[in-house]
Design a binder for these strands. Structure first.
Lengths: 163, 163
DNA sequence: TCTTGTTACTTGTTTTAACAACTATTGTCT
DNA sequence: AGACAATAGTTGTTAAAACAAGTAACAAGA
């Protein structure tokens, strides 16, 4: 509880709590902005993220849990997330014959087209979210965020966000 | 798209996107840590937050939508959030006689006791989340997070996080 | 080859979240 | 006073998240 000057922060129990609450609120506010874009296409940010990952390996496929691990946000419900995208005709799944436990997931043309269709709107939303910050502030913020979560990342399965 | 050196970030469409994804992932990882604490008491972080706000005015009450506006994360479903806390016997609600549209919410003793009971565990979780960062890094991070969301805050209804 | 264990999902169930539509009250304008 | 708008919640409905338990397929050792 290294508070050198309590009078400046009377409403938090600790500096760590203050930072976490700021993180939570900032995420919530910024998320709302990009959710407007995804809402218009009828998908969620998490679903978009899954499609993006599949696009990086297209026309190859990726196995279900591997995809789940690489998502920005953890997804214990990866099966049904993919169910919905499959029902929308955005991807296809196939059980692998050499190991029938594994299900391979592949984005299909309608999925690629959706990504292309909303690409500009997504970029616009990121500008609206953070376009008011300088490049150096953004780099600094990214660095601090990575530092904040580093001890909590699974080193065996780093996300594409980790350096 | 002020990317001076694209080769260092080949996997993002923009610096703004990179920062937002880092924010999302960091929030997700840190949230998981404190959710363990709340899970043991059977409440959510958002519910805990509502109780905390009510505690700040205890033994006075606060009206429903005012409480909803002050939550860290927006809560369009504030009615049912309060329903659950009321069913747990942690708060009480009363329709105001001088304006029967308004419902006043007040934390009751069981709610205060719950907050006292888990206070230490919550503080511990914040230490586990961010205890590895220096005080100056934490202050810098808090400052950048406030800067990031400033244009998106409702100036008419600032949260207690805003300076 | 027959357990026993591990892996890779699936399913069931319960909470939450999000959005829209709806009700009850009060305020305002004529 | 009556009409109309605005306020403060509530309810209905659907989608998504979280957690636990269950199933099928493969792996490894006795």
């Amino acid at each position: 509880m290294s508070r050198t000057n309590p009078s400046t922060r009377p409403r938090f129990d600790s500096l760590q709590q203050e930072v976490f609450l700021n993180l939570w609120r900032t995420y919530d506010r910024l998320k709302q902005i990009e959710d407007e874009v995804f809402g218009q296409e009828g998908i969620s940010a998490q679903q978009y993220n899954a499609l993006r990952l599949l696009q990086t390996v297209h026309p190859d496929s990726m196995q279900t849990l591997e995809l789940g691990r690489r998502l920005i946000s953890r997804a214990p419900d990866i099966t049904r997330l993919l169910d919905r995208l499959e029902q929308l005709g955005l991807l296809e799944r196939e059980r692998r014959s050499d190991n029938r436990r594994v299900v391979q997931v592949r984005i299909v043309s309608a999925g690629v087209e959706l990504l292309e269709r909303i690409h500009v709107a997504v970029q616009d939303s990121h500008q609206r979210q953070l376009g008011h910050m300088s490049e150096s502030s953004l780099n600094q913020l990214a660095r601090l965020l990575r530092h904040a979560r580093r001890p909590h990342e699974d080193l065996n399965h780093p996300s594409l966000l980790d350096e």
